[in-house]
């Protein structure tokens, strides 16, 4: 009897604590995420739809949008190929230096983006290692589009591989071995067995690396040179307009980037829902199996 009584009395402070934590979390998220996000859209539309549309329908803004899309379109597919290859190597083979490779894949996440940008300037800039050779052959990398693409690839390198490695580790190699014994070639095994098993995680990785590719500021800022209409991506254009006190213009483009983030978030949530259904099956099979 006393036990029950005691437990009941203890539950009231516990309920209060739970409520306090939930309220604190929500308040924090509102203050630091929702309000700023909403303010981006409010600022962008402050002077009405006309001003908003005008600041987007402007040659420099359109060039920035095109360049951003181009950079993402080049870097994301390359990262898919690299990410799948790296995940395959990390989970299907044992070799010397595997731990080192794992650490290298994560390197871009732990290095400051500005440092990453400077690395490329150091290599390909006018004073850099390959600078004179490149200049002699008339190839521009720094302060030109190739530099932007290179920096973006570097920054987004880990996203696909990091999504795939844990999943492929959990799924193991048995299905692929079964396919081989059944007579499938290496490519058939990949396209008919491996790829379908990792498709949701892969898509999720693509989404993350796309969001980062379009939103990257630091590394891109270092190699860009801020040439309007030529080497300015959307985040850089936002900064430049802001520095010119063109608030509506800056927030108009910022709102497009924010919209991209929201769409990414929504698709990510949908994928996670799908993807979890898949991994639950894996987990359940493993529980039953062993």
């Amino acid at each position: 009897m006393t036990m029950v009584h005691r437990r009941r009395r203890a539950s009231t402070p516990r309920r209060l604590g739970r409520l306090a934590l939930i309220v604190a979390t929500c308040a924090f998220l509102c203050l630091f995420l929702l309000v700023p996000l909403a303010s981006v859209f409010v600022e962008a539309w402050r002077q009405g739809a006309h001003a908003f549309l005008e600041s987007i329908d402007d040659p420099d803004a359109l060039a920035a949008i095109r360049l951003t899309l181009f950079v993402a379109l080049v870097s994301v597919p390359l990262n898919v190929v690299f990410g799948v290859a790296a995940a395959w190597a990390m989970t299907r083979f044992t070799f010397r230096g595997k731990a080192l490779l794992g650490a290298l894949i994560d390197l871009p996440l732990s290095v400051s983006p500005v440092v990453s940008g400077l690395l490329f300037v150091l290599m390909f800039g006018a004073q850099g290692w390959f600078g004179p050779w490149l200049a002699a052959h008339g190839i521009n990398i720094i302060f030109a589009v190739p530099g932007l693409v290179l920096a973006t690839i570097f920054i987004t390198l880990p996203f696909v591989a990091r999504e795939l490695i844990p999943l492929m580790q959990a799924q193991g190699t048995e299905e692929e071995e079964a396919a081989r014994v059944l007579g499938a070639s290496g490519w058939q095994t990949f396209f008919r067995v491996t790829l379908p098993n990792i498709r949701w995680a892969l898509l999720y990785g693509v989404l993350l690396s796309n969001a980062r590719a379009m939103g990257e500021f630091g590394a891109v800022s270092v190699v860009s040179g801020h040439i309007r209409g030529l080497t300015t991506t959307m985040p850089l254009e936002v900064e430049m307009r802001y520095n010119e006190y063109n608030y509506v213009g800056a927030f108009a483009i910022a709102s497009l980037l924010a919209l991209l983030a929201l769409v990414t978030l929504a698709v990510k949530a949908a994928l996670e829902w799908r993807f979890h259904a898949d991994t639950d099956v894996v987990a359940a099979a493993r529980r039953r199996g062993t």
């Binding site: 079964a178 081989r180 014994v181 059944l182 008919r192 379908p196 099956v281 099979a285 199996g289």
Partner: peptide, 20 residues
């Protein structure tokens, strides 16, 4: 190699293709 041997293999944990 494995694909030319014409053997059938059954695994302890089935190894069925889960998406098929």
């Amino acid at each position: 190699n494995a694909r030319e041997r014409n053997v059938g293999l059954v695994f302890q944990h089935y190894a069925l293709f889960r998406h098929l």
